[in-house]
Amino acid sequence: MLISLLQAIASGVVTGCAYALVALSLVMIYKSTDVINFGGGEMVMIGGYLAMFALLAIGLPYAGAFVFAAVVAFMVGAAFDRVVLDRMLGRALPGQSVLVAMVIATVGLSYVLKGLVRVVPYTEEVRRLAPLFAGDPVFLGPIILQRQDIAIVVIAVLLMRAWWAFFNFTLLGKALRATSQNPRAAALIGIPVRAMRMTIWGIAAIFAAMAGILLGPKLLMTPDMGSVVILAFAAAIVGGFHNLPGCILGGVVLGVVQNLVGLYISSRAIVLTPFVVIMLVLVLRPQGLFGGAVVTKKV
């Protein structure tokens, strides 16, 4: 029983790390633009398909596939902001909020991406993205982990560290943070807010795409794999939608809780877990488990 528990926790941490990357992408956008990105799941999905395209059609190695997917995902995210959201903001009348319309636009983005992917030949059947590392599983005592699982954790942690370093130690990162915290003040000190907003969308798309590449060998590739976004929403809510490190922990907590629910309550309840978690957290601690006190945002 203890072995099953340890195995469930280890496996939950692995999937949780991938959820955390998607959650990070969602929270990044939310913190800087107030927009909840319902197209985040489809950004995950296109990341996986872009990597598959790079590996199979172009013949790139895995590292090249990561770069290719990152570049294209950045362009997709940035283009969506510039072509759709920026225009919506530009056409808004003084005092008029277009936030709801922007959120609906992200729903539109999800349909567009899913529709575009369906026309490529790879979606004719369920496919598996080649694992990053093949070979015999690794035994940590009684716990069995695939090499791919270890790669997921390592790459997710590296990406999160890179993200932290970028936002804390680079000028661009600091400008992005300033834009996210107070766009008006950022504009006053000469930060190009529109460009920063576009960059945030691009970087968020990269994080989602990376999650897609990591999840592709585990979940298998279909145009509907973007449904994992609900797990990322749950992770973000658990961690606190304003709290970037919190959403990472939220992803891991959710991955583990899902497995424990399956192990001790019922397999049927696994997919219900994120919804129950979302409801419980919103009712009992709306700022999230790691979100600190509720504050009123001043813009």
Partner: peptide
């Protein structure tokens, strides 16, 4: 729609 069958 299950994404992880570890527990079952």
């Amino acid at each position: 729609r299950v994404t992880d069958v570890t527990a079952p």
